[in-house]
Structure formats: structure tokens, C-alpha cells
Write a protein that binds this DNA or RNA. Structure first.
Lengths: 339, 339
DNA sequence: TTGTAGGCGTTATCAC
DNA sequence: GTGATAACGCCTACAA
């Protein structure tokens, strides 16, 4: 410990900078905030003083004066503690954090405990937050939708309800699912099943719809559908049900990579080969896609970009800059070894 | 939109509460902060007013007055953008966020861009943060160690250097690795290899040491060592090297689950069976452990608890509450199907 | 272009 | 026990 007894070294204030530079606080404030009307000479000496004192503006004081928190909050519904196990979540957060790094906004995360939602609510509405980001896909999200009248809010993915007014960023799940299924069909598969996600969640709904369109178009049957909850075990269970039907089956489109990985277990557990006996395509292109053997062919979901775009949209909203209400990011099919 | 043209509804201030309750601001402040010396009667009417006005204290004003930010920052080294792909990271964050939810501290994340470390530094030292949490295992962390004299700081895992003064939370990697290896030996394996993590990172070093102790004790060879970087592909590469040696080999202890998953690819790629031909044990018990087939036997790493304990330690440090400098969390071996 | 002065919402130090 | 009153560090009319 080389720390002296005087405690943490005092932090320089704007006033100290002003004194050192021989100008008024107002002038310092102006150069700090990059206002144009400042004599270049003075600006220089102020900058020198700032450097000399290692001055950093005090966020609290600034927020108080401007009546803006310079903070955006990421809400994580507690019910969805699963999200943390979901690679999707981490990547969205990465994208958000990365974008905000270059702005004056700070990211803060709250787990909205369902036991005391009031606490979260008053935190958000208490003027401590300039905007809100909601990441989970789950229906739980919508408990916050009503705040969007009072506070700028951006969602990851189309909200199940209220979509006409909400700001959100997503990929075209339906189109992407259609393309993925087409890949299966075009490579000659005749009996294409799907493991769909929850039908009360937009990605679950839309991806199923895309599959349906593709099989209809190809004149294939639409009966081979089982539903999971986006977890790996649910994928295994769904695949087993599919196989238990005894109907011919040579391909499956899973609603996400985790369920696809689960399907692998069921398929390989019965001694069937991927892709020889059954081809598999997933969705998301997350870590599961490359951790399984054979590597999974899947829809690439640009998740980091999605997070970044969410943050960008929110900041624009906060600052009154016109922004698209809906942003749809492009996807692509990543061909690996499972088809 | 049911929002009227008056903009966001005005937020109640302490002063408004005081007016409504017919007391001074000082009294309201005392009630809000739970100070004892307040007439119960008055306290009641104040509480009623607070409820009526849906009052929430303004964080900025409070921070300014108390000269405390009530903010804890999680630093994510940019070099380590991998951390986001690492299930470990998400769980630590979950633990931290969960703990902080019940405190007055707010979590905020910064990606410390290496291009402009000064920005991060002055943000941290500018009085905008009460304490710092550092999550990555990587050596990059230590670029922040020097701040620990000026700002409370808690690490995830033993720092490579400066460990004598730092506060950190970890598991006993060496003991856990020893136990895992013993499991292999006790079940009759005679040629136990290891895929070690980077030898410039404490978990890499300590887990290798645990393996070494166990094989020495059992009189087995210590030559079967390859090193990876904790990624899946490095696990595959290391396992291939091991197999290429041509030496007898019937078990492998991997430094983490991702490398174990990578090893699976190499093993199964050569037509060898797990666990019949080669038994595999991993470390961390993350999502990779259950996504592979057969399910991986591994050391359970209590990551969420680790995050929680980090946050708890930091808050204690900030508030001057005596705390253990080092916390070691218990691990356990989770037996699945790979041994 | 620059400085003066008042205020942002709370807490803390005093008297009462 | 309670209430004035002065900070806390910064921004922003407004005046000069």
C-alpha cells in the first residue's frame, strides 16, 4: 500500500480548472461541452488546465443541472433468469455496451424482481434513467410496455402486443426460417419437420410460419411439428416425439440452436446419423452451433449488431433525433456439416 | 398514445413531499433515510405523502450531496471481447446484478477500450464510481490493478500478480482439479492426460497443478500435457496433438468445459468412443457440459454465487465494513456420462 | 466572447 | 425532535 493517510486524492472540480486557467467557470463549462463561442486562446489554456488537473466532470452534478441522467437501463426480467444462460443475451449486451462506450450514456442493468416490481418502476420513473432497453423475448417483457408512454423504450425483437407503437430491432425471422427450410428442401429432403419455439413468443411464431410457408410451397406435409421452449432439453424431447411418430423424416429445422443441439442428442441417441439420415438446421448461430458434432448449419443472427442498433435507436429517441421505429437486420445462412 | 402534450409527467421532489406533509425538507430526508429521531406521527404523514406523490429520491442530487456515486462499475477489457461468448461471464454478471438489486448501488458496465484507456481511467477516478469489479481472467486485467490504491476493487479469481493486497473471490481450482483427476484414476484409468489452460492465467496454472499432483500421487506419467487457450477449437487441437503422440491414453482432464467440448470433436472424429475408449472430465459445469453428447462429467463452478460474493465484498469495502480479502467458494464434481 | 448569479434536489450542520 | 441554511459541482439565462 502506497496510499497516504489523506484518503482518496481529491478530485478536481470545474472551479479549480477555472482558477488555474484564470477564467470563469462558465468559460470552462463551455469548452468542456464544446460550445463554439470561445476564444481559441482561452480554450487552449483551459484545456491545459484540465489536463494538468486531470479533471473529469462530475456526472451527478451534471445530471442534476441538466435534469438528465445520462443513463440507459437494461431491464432483465427475473422470470427470465434463463436469459443469462442464453448466449443471445450476452451478445446483445455486448453490442449495447460497445455502442454506448462512445456516447455520454452509461449502461446500467437491473434485474426486475417480480416480488417488488414497484421498486423497479419507481426507479425507472424517478428521473434516474433516460431510457430503457428490454432484451428478453419472453412475454414477461410486456409488463413494461406501458411505460413506453413515459420513457423512451426500445425492445429486442417485435413485442407480442403493442407492436404498432413500440420501437424495436429485429431480424426477419419468418423470411430467415423460410430460407433455412428451403435449403433443406432444395438439397433433396422430402420429409422436413420442425421444432418450433413457444407460440406465445414472436420468434417462435414467426420462425414456424417461415417453415410452414416453405413446406407448403414445396407441397410437403405440414404435420411434422413439435414445440419446445428454446432450451436444449426441450429440443431433445421434441425430437424424440417426432421420431416416435414413426413417420418418415429426413430433415428438421429447429427454432434455435439450443434446441437443435438437443435434437442431436435424440437423433444420435437412436443411432441415426447427421446429416446422412437426418439433416438439421438451426437458428441463431450461437456457441451451440459450433460446439456440436457435426457442426450445425444455421441462420446467422447478427446479435451484437442488434444490441448496437437498439442502443443507437434509444439514444436517438432520447435526444429527439428522428429514428426508424422498426429496424430489421439482415440474416444469412451459414452452411456447416449438418445438412 | 395516451400521452398528453405536457411531456413526461413531472417527478415529485422532496420539497413537494415536505409541503404536502406540512414538515420541513429536513424531516422528509430523515424519514426517507430511516433516521431514528423522528416523531412517529410525523413519519406517518410523511410516508403517506411519499406514497401519494409516488416520490423517488433523485439519485444525482443525492450523489452530489453525499459525494458518493452509489455506483459500482464492471470493467470488461476490450481485448477480452471473448468474455461475452464465455458462459462464465454472463453468470458472473447475473450474480453481481442479483446481489446489487437489494442494495442502493447501481451496476454499470464499461468496455475499457484499449485505444483510449485514459477515458476509462478518468471516468473511474473522476468520482463517478464507488468501486470496481473486474471479471476477466486474462492478464489484461492487471492494467487496472494499480487503481486499487485509489478505489475499492474486487477481482474474479486470483490475480496473477499483486495477489497479496487484492480482494478477490475464487474457487480452489487446484483442489478441484485434483479431485476431478482422482475421479478418473479411481475409476481405473491408467493414462490420464490433461488439456491445460494458458499458463499465464491463474486458473490455467492451478488446474494443471491439481492434475499433476493427482497423477504423481498415483504414480502415473506426467508427460501427457497439452495447452489450450480455453476456447473450444484450442481443445480440439490439443486433443489431436495428444492422440498423435501415439502413447496410450484412456482419460483426459480438460481445463474447462469448452476445451472438453473441443476434445470431443477430436476424439469422436477418430472414431473413438467416450467414455469407453477415453474418459473426459471438464471444469466449470457451464452450458457446454450438457450440450455435448455424452453429457460431460465436470467440476461445478458456482459462478453466480461468485458474482454475488464479489459484489458483496465490494459493497462492504466501500462502506467500510470489515471483509475477508479472499473468499474461496466450494466446488463439487458433477458425474454425468463421460467417465 | 466572457462573466455573474441563480438553481438543479439532497444532505448535513447548526441553532432552536 | 425539528427546521433553517449552506453546501455539493455543474449548467445556463442574462448581463456586460
Amino acid at each position: 500500500m502506497t496510499q497516504d493517510a489523506s484518503g482518496p486524492r481529491p478530485v478536481a472540480t470545474l472551479e479549480m480548472v477555472a482558477a488555474l486557467a484564470g477564467v470563469s467557470r462558465a468559460t470552462v463549462s463551455r469548452v468542456v461541452n464544446g460550445l463554439p463561442s470561445v476564444d481559441p486562446k482561452l480554450a487552449q489554456s483551459v484545456k491545459k488546465a484540465i489536463l494538468a488537473l486531470d479533471y473529469t466532470p462530475n456526472r451527478a452534478a451534471r445530471s442534476l443541472a441538466k435534469r438528465r441522467a445520462n443513463t440507459v437501463t437494461l431491464i432483465v426480467p427475473e422470470s427470465t433468469s434463463k436469459v443469462f444462460a442464453d448466449p443471445f443475451f450476452a451478445s446483445v449486451v455486448e453490442g449495447i455496451a460497445r455502442y454506448l462506450t462512445d456516447t455520454d450514456y452509461t449502461l446500467n442493468m437491473v434485474i426486475s424482481s417480480e416480488s417488488k416490481p414497484e421498486k423497479t418502476r419507481s426507479f425507472l420513473l424517478g428521473g434516474n434513467v433516460d431510457g430503457v432497453l428490454v432484451v428478453s423475448h419472453h412475454s414477461g417483457d410486456h409488463s413494461w410496455t406501458h411505460l413506453s408512454g413515459s420513457l423512451p423504450m426500445v425492445f429486442a425483437g417485435r413485442p407480442l402486443v403493442g407492436g404498432k407503437e413500440s420501437y424495436y430491432v429485429e431480424v426477419d425471422n419468418e423470411q430467415a426460417a423460410y430460407n433455412a427450410t428451403r435449403q433443406l428442401i432444395d438439397s433433396g429432403r422430402k420429409h422436413v419437420a420442425t421444432i418450433a419455439g413457444p407460440q406465445d413468443m414472436p420468434p417462435g411464431i414467426d420462425r414456424l410460419a417461415g417453415w410452414r410457408t416453405a413446406v407448403q410451397e414445396a407441397g410437403l406435409g405440414e404435420a411434422l411439428v413439435e414445440t419446445g421452449d428454446f432450451t436444449q432439453v426441450s429440443g431433445t424431447r421434441a425430437m424424440q416425439s417426432l421420431l416416435d411418430r414413426g413417420d418418415p423424416l429426413d430433415a428438421v429445422f429447429a427454432g434455435n440452436d439450443q434446441m437443435a443441439a438437443g435434437a442431436y442428442t435424440a437423433i444420435q441417441g437412436r443411432g441415426l446419423r447427421i446429416p446422412e439420415d437426418i439433416a438439421v438446421v438451426g437458428f441463431d448461430d450461437d456457441s451451440f452451433a459450433t460446439s456440436v458434432t457435426p457442426a450445425l448449419t444455421t441462420v446467422h443472427h447478427p446479435i451484437i449488431e442488434l444490441g448496437g442498433k437498439m442502443a443507437e435507436t434509444l439514444v436517438n429517441l432520447i435526444e429527439g433525433i428522428p429514428t426508424d421505429r422498426v429496424t430489421v437486420l439482415p440474416t444469412s445462412l451459414v452452411i456447416r456439416d449438418s445438412v
